[in-house]
Structure formats: structure tokens, C-alpha cells
Amino acid sequence: MSTRTFTVGGMTCGHCARSVTEELSELPGVTDVQVSVASGQVSVLSEQELSRDAVTAAITEAGYTITDWPSAN
């Protein structure tokens, strides 16, 4: 299992969190998504390491941007 935590900009409410969660949950291997609107932190648990391109595309599809992509946990 792999956990990736990053920061998403522009989220302001529960609807924002749901949109991000829905898009990320559609990525192959994703088993859990946790979103904190207050901090902008998103943690994704997946069966394998997720590519930055795939995560970026999902976040963009939800209408937001990744503002910080730290090294893998």
C-alpha cells in the first residue's frame, strides 16, 4: 500500500471535498481518500504508487490545483 499526501488549492467547502474525493477515488488502485478543507491537505491510500500526472489530472477535473507535492511518504 502507498499513501500520498499533498495540498490542493481552492477548496472552500464540503462540496469541494466531495468533488476531489470522487475524482481521486476513480483512479485505479485507490482505496481511501481523506480531505481537509481547512488545511487543503489530501491523503490518498492506494494499492500502488500513484503517478503525479494521474493525480493532477483528477484534481484538475474536479476544478482545483495541486499547490504542493512533497516526496512520497
Rank of each mutant, 00 (worst) to 15 (best):
E47N: 12
S71V: 03
C13N: 11
V20W: 04
T7H: 00
V42H: 02
T7V: 09
V44E: 01
T60V: 05
W69R: 14
E23C: 10
A58Q: 06
G10H: 10
M1E: 07
T5E: 13
I59M: 00
T12K: 15
T7F: 00
G10S: 09
S71N: 11
E61R: 12
T5H: 04
D53S: 11
L24K: 03
T5W: 05
T65V: 06
L50W: 08
C16E: 10
I66D: 05
A72S: 15
V55F: 06
V42P: 00
S51F: 08
T56P: 03
D68H: 12
L50P: 15
T60D: 10
G40H: 10
F6S: 11
S71K: 10
V44S: 03
S2N: 12
S43D: 07
T31C: 01
E26H: 12
E49D: 15
R52Y: 12
V37Y: 08
N73M: 02
A72Y: 09
V33R: 04
V35S: 05
E61W: 00
G10W: 13
S19G: 12
E61H: 08
T60I: 00
D53G: 02
L27K: 12
C16M: 08
S2Y: 11
T12Q: 14
S71M: 06
S39I: 05
T67N: 01
T67M: 02
Q41L: 09
S39F: 07
D68Y: 02
E61I: 00
A17G: 00
E47R: 13
M1S: 14
T60K: 05
S39L: 11
I66V: 15
G40R: 07
R18D: 04
E49S: 15
E22C: 03
T31I: 03
C16I: 05
G9Y: 03
T21Q: 10
V37F: 09
E26A: 15
V35Y: 01
S25R: 13
V20S: 03
